[in-house]
């Protein structure tokens, strides 16, 4: 499988990365080289093979459904580029 310019632009939109026409053209070539490389996997017989979910066999650990941490909203927002009264601030979303 390979991607065309429109697919690359659509995927860039999904990935929320702004790309120029020129960048999209360059990326199309690069992504097709990588997709061509992974095409080797078509040679492998995977009939009846379970997909890997974890390399280490262990039961999912569970914890008590309880608050174990928190109470420091000021620290949570301290690295935000813009914040106000312990809220993250973003451009207007709802009209």
């Amino acid at each position: 499988m390979s991607v065309d310019l429109n697919t690359v632009k659509r995927v860039a939109g999904l990935a929320r990365i702004k790309v120029s026409q020129e960048q999209a053209e360059t990326m199309t070539g690069e992504l097709n080289v990588i997709l061509g490389f992974v095409e080797q996997l078509d040679e492998v017989n995977i009939d009846g093979v379970e997909p890997m979910t974890s390399v280490v066999e262990q039961f999912m650990k569970k914890r008590i459904d309880d608050q174990s941490d928190g109470g420091y909203a000021d620290k949570i927002v301290s690295n935000a580029p813009v914040h106000e009264d312990n809220f993250f601030t973003v451009p207007k979303v709802v009209e």
């Binding site: 929320r16 690295n79 580029p81 813009v82 993250f88 973003v90 451009p91």
Partner: peptide, 19 residues
Amino acid sequence: DGVRYGLRVPGNDIVEMYE
């Protein structure tokens, strides 16, 4: 995404800010 940490480059709306 420019909201919680690090770099933020402004845009006309939130999606453009992300992009």
